[in-house]
Design a protein around this nucleic acid. Sequence first.
DNA 1: TGGCGCAAGATTGTCGACAATCTGGATGTG
DNA 2: CACATCCAGATTGTCGACAATCTTGCGCCA
Lengths: 224, 224
Amino acid sequence: MKAATSQNAVAGQSLADRLYETLRAEIVEGRIAAGSKISEPELARRFEASRGSLREALMRLEALGLLERRVNVGARVVDLSERGLLELYDVREALEGMACRLAATQRTDADLAELRRMLEHHEQQEELRAGTAYFQPEGDFDFHFRIVQASGNDLLIDTLCNRLYYRVRMYRYQLGMASPRAQRAFREHSHIIEAIEAGDGDLAELLMRRHIRASRQNIENKLR
Amino acid sequence: MKAATSQNAVAGQSLADRLYETLRAEIVEGRIAAGSKISEPELARRFEASRGSLREALMRLEALGLLERRVNVGARVVDLSERGLLELYDVREALEGMACRLAATQRTDADLAELRRMLEHHEQQEELRAGTAYFQPEGDFDFHFRIVQASGNDLLIDTLCNRLYYRVRMYRYQLGMASPRAQRAFREHSHIIEAIEAGDGDLAELLMRRHIRASRQNIENKLR
DNA sequence: TGGCGCAAGATTGTCGACAATCTGGATGTG
DNA sequence: CACATCCAGATTGTCGACAATCTTGCGCCA
């Protein structure tokens, strides 16, 4: 093993990789404001990297849909909008519905056991927090995340977990969309697992789509 | 207006943009073989560009899902597989189904007129080619393409028309999946348009999903 | 003879500099 | 006073070179 040449070197990761991950987190969490302009020289100085490596990171962020770049003008962080959030829900409804359908027939026993374990964990947390509790967003999302991975469709997994995932988190962080539908969401998750366990793809898809549509409706009501 | 500095300069396009588009076409059409390794120095010499600009094009191709890159190893064109093709159909079924549902309520009159025009055009072509005809792939895809754009959901449009589009075309070119379901596909398209015109989102989605699933089934039968 | 280690060549990652282009403010004119 | 023009500064796009890493083929040893 060689010693790391830079301070934060990780095996199998390039400098551009680390810049990409760091910037991604800063954009998702709003430390770099939505809609703000990105200055390549400024960021390069801040991270003590060359503009080339930084540009590689920026291009990956553009591919993720977190940045928009225009030739000879530069990059801007995407704007968050009510419309964009609702669009995200429609795409999730379609893709996670399909993921759920596939998971009903493609899941392994390990997938199912893991889903049950997560559900139990959520139930305990809910009991602790009693009535004031809201479904912690990360836990909810992990649940969805896990179902997608049980679908066995690599393209679907990549699209949801690598492409849309960070956009969802960005909206949650910055528009604070923690859905306060604790018991209801818990029951819906529970029914979805049952359908998956029964191998009923039609029902599993239907339930997941309803679940996501209910979230969307909940947001829509809040917004007006 | 300034004179172009390079031979093929286009306004509002960078060199990396052009390399990206050229390479994308070569990969989609199989001129650069699926699964083959990409040599940065070789391609840079071939296009008389620097490695930097070429690398930018390669990174965009990676974001498109046409290349896979590993750190310190290089880039390879993705492999085409039966499994990958079927995965693509499942994702399309979910997304185009949703696009169809949205188009039923979001379409403009211009969208509808354009869809009808395309359908008529297809009908004429089919009459000309009589029985031996097969539904020309590009025409079929343009139809799907147009419906997606009528959905009004920018995220959905981008995902299907910028991300998955080229992967679909790559499979069509290289595995030659021209579906020989001419009359049937034509009738299905016709019914889809009617559902969209009637504003019946449920039906429009159902019909589109059946349509795509039938294509998938057709491919699946052929493969065994 | 088969397998391991090592060195040479080639490839990828990173960097700093130069050229082309855009942005914003000052200036002049109707 | 409004508007078009132009210039200066800054930013982005492109390039060639150097350093780090991987691959390949050879030699050596059990």
